[in-house]
Design a protein around this nucleic acid. Structure first.
Length: 358
DNA sequence: AAAGCGGGGAG
DNA sequence: CTCCCAGCTTT
């Protein structure tokens, strides 16, 4: 197959969108954008990227910031381990590398949060190294170019695609070529209804020739996700403060704050579940009062219905048993803490009620 | 309701 | 080295 690079680069030179991270080759800025762009669409990332860079303009500033401050800037973006790894990597670069990112993909990949894709992206875009990338966009473009009829989730198939990414990489402008491939996948070679009529490399595309572009890439069927009911407490003390808890630093929503509670078990009511969870995780006793609000929320491997109950604190100094930390705070102070989306909806309901009462 | 999107870490 | 885990947006 003749090289796709000339047509792709010419298209990119004409059509490339003007994203904020494309106005710089600063490794810190490129790194930040690539971490944010993992698992997250471009349009979502832009405002987070700009606010984050304004708050932490240099890798040193990020390294010096407390983790809580970093998580607060990440709030709502999801996959919070990215923020924790970003913070750790910033400290390594600032403290052990004199503030300079390594330039090769192999060295970059040793930093937390940087895998093969991100290492290739940073080294090619920020440092002009001839390193390949393979993200979901590139997988889709390649699966169509080669009319690949095997499941792209299979490891052997992924390895083959990495080899293609390496083999087709041009000698010059590897960073632009990589970005062009991903941009093509995002805007033209889209998951559904690809715009083959305006594709600059249509002439190279086996799927287009065979009319199979809508069947590529082949993906395995996903198992249906389970559903759980979760009870959470909006727990008030006698001076009008709320008890919030910080989740353990590892795992789901790691390091984020929440209204404490947990999953309903077989044969227990939601108020019973809530009282049990509060004993298990904080060693406190509460009076469960009215159901306050119900929130539906989806995660990768399951979905939840969150039932938030108004509660009155009764006894027991909170203990850090199943939580990383806890705090009594006023409603107005809630915005200073990082919460996941579902708990943010509970807070929105609290603010709405407060507004109604005024 | 379902699809889309990379890396860490346990086993 | 595999397999399992992981949040939110868009369609």
């Amino acid at each position: 197959m003749p090289s796709i690079a000339p047509a792709l680069l010419a298209w990119y030179d004409r059509e490339a969108a003007d994203f904020p991270w494309r106005r710089t080759h600063d490794a810190y800025a490129v790194w930040l954008s690539e971490i944010m762009l993992q698992q997250t669409q471009v349009e979502t990332v832009i405002p987070y990227y700009e606010r984050f860079l304004a708050a932490f303009p240099t890798v040193q500033a990020l390294a010096d910031a407390p983790l809580d401050t970093v998580l607060k800037r990440w709030e709502g973006l999801g996959y919070y381990s990215r923020a924790r790894n970003l913070h750790r990597a910033a400290q390594i670069v600032a403290q052990e590398m004199g503030g300079n990112f390594p330039s090769t993909a192999d060295e970059l990949e040793k930093l937390p949060g940087i895998g093969r894709y991100t290492a290739g992206a940073i080294s090619s875009i920020a440092f002009g190294q001839r390193a390949p990338v393979l993200d979901g966009n590139v997988i889709r473009v390649f699966a169509r170019l080669t009319d690949l009829n095997t499941e792209v989730t299979q490891n052997a198939v992924k390895m083959k695609l990495w080899t293609l990414a390496e083999d087709w990489l041009p000698a010059e402008r590897a960073g632009d070529y990589n970005q062009a491939l991903m941009e093509l996948g995002r805007t033209v070679c889209k998951p559904r209804n690809p715009l083959c009529g305006i594709c600059p490399i249509q002439a190279h595309c086996a799927a287009f020739t065979n009319g199979t572009q809508n069947e590529r890439p082949v993906k395995a069927k996903k198992a249906p996700v389970p559903h759980y009911d979760v009870a959470a407490g909006v727990i008030w003390n006698d001076v009008g403060q709320l008890l919030i808890a910080q989740r353990p630093l590892k795992g789901l929503l790691g390091g984020l704050w929440e209204f404490p509670g947990g999953k309903q078990e077989q044969g227990e009511t939601l108020p019973e579940c809530l009282k049990r969870e509060l004993r298990e995780e904080l060693a406190i006793e509460v009076e469960v009062e009215d159901l306050f609000t119900v929130v539906h929320h989806g995660f990768t491997h399951f979905k939840i219905t969150l039932h938030a109950f108004m509660c009155r604190y009764r006894s027991g100094a909170p203990q850090k048993i199943g939580v990383h930390d806890w705090a009594w705070v006023s409603v107005n102070e809630l915005d200073q803490y990082s919460f996941g989306k579902a708990d943010r909806e509970v807070i929105a309901a609290l603010n709405a009620r407060k507004t109604m009462l005024l």
